[in-house]
Simulated scan of single mutants.
Amino acid sequence: MIRSQLLAVVRDLLVHEGPHAVTLEAVAHRTNVTKGGLQHHFRSKQALLDALSEQLFEEFEQSYDRALQQEADTPGRHARAYIRTCFDGQADCNRVDTQRAIGLLALTSPACRERWHATMQAALAADGPDADTANLLLVCRLAGDGFWFAQMLDVYELGAQRQADLLALLLKLCGGGARP
Rank of each mutant, 00 (worst) to 15 (best):
L142R: 04
G159W: 09
A150Y: 00
E157H: 13
A126L: 14
A143L: 15
V139Y: 09
D132W: 09
M152H: 04
L171N: 04
Q151H: 13
D132N: 10
A150W: 04
A143D: 07
N135I: 07
Q163G: 02
Q163W: 03
G144S: 01
K172N: 09
N135K: 11
D130H: 12
A126I: 04
L136K: 08
A150C: 07
P129A: 15
Q151A: 13
G146H: 11
Y156A: 12
L166N: 08
A168N: 02
R162S: 09
P129T: 14
G146W: 08
A160E: 15
G144K: 03
L138D: 03
A150S: 15
M152V: 00
L158F: 10
A150L: 06
D132T: 13
D127M: 15
L137E: 05
A122K: 12
L124V: 12
M152W: 03
D130S: 10
R162Q: 14
D132A: 13
G128I: 05
L166K: 02
F147I: 08
L169M: 11
D165G: 01
L167G: 03
R162T: 14
L153T: 06
Q161Y: 01
L124K: 13
A134R: 15
N135S: 11
G144V: 04
C140Y: 00
P129D: 15
K172T: 12
D154V: 11
A143E: 03
Q161S: 11
P129I: 11
L137M: 08
Q121Y: 03
G159S: 07
L142Q: 07
L166D: 07
L171F: 07
L137C: 08
L167F: 00
F147A: 03
L169T: 12
A123V: 06
L169Y: 08
R141S: 09
Q161W: 00
L171S: 00
G159K: 11
N135F: 07
D165M: 10
D132M: 05
C140K: 01
A125G: 10
Q121M: 11
K172V: 06
A123C: 10
A126K: 02
A131V: 14
N135G: 09
Q163E: 14
C140W: 01
E157F: 09
G128W: 11
A150V: 03
V155D: 07
A160V: 07
Y156D: 08
D130Q: 15
A125D: 06
N135P: 00
L124Q: 13
D130M: 10
A125R: 10
M152G: 08
F147P: 06
R162E: 14
L170W: 02
Q161G: 00
L166M: 15
W148G: 05
R141M: 10
A131Y: 02
Q163C: 04
F147G: 03
P129Q: 13
Q151V: 08
A150H: 06
G159H: 09
L167M: 03
A123E: 13
Q121G: 04
D127Q: 13
K172Y: 08
T133H: 09
P129C: 04
L166S: 05
G159R: 03
L124R: 14
N135R: 15
A164P: 07
E157D: 15
G144H: 00
C140R: 01
G146V: 00
Q121A: 13
A164I: 01
L136I: 12
N135H: 06
L142H: 06
A164E: 14
A164Q: 15
A164S: 12
G128Q: 09
Q163N: 05
L158D: 04
A168Q: 11
Q121K: 10
L138V: 06
A160H: 11
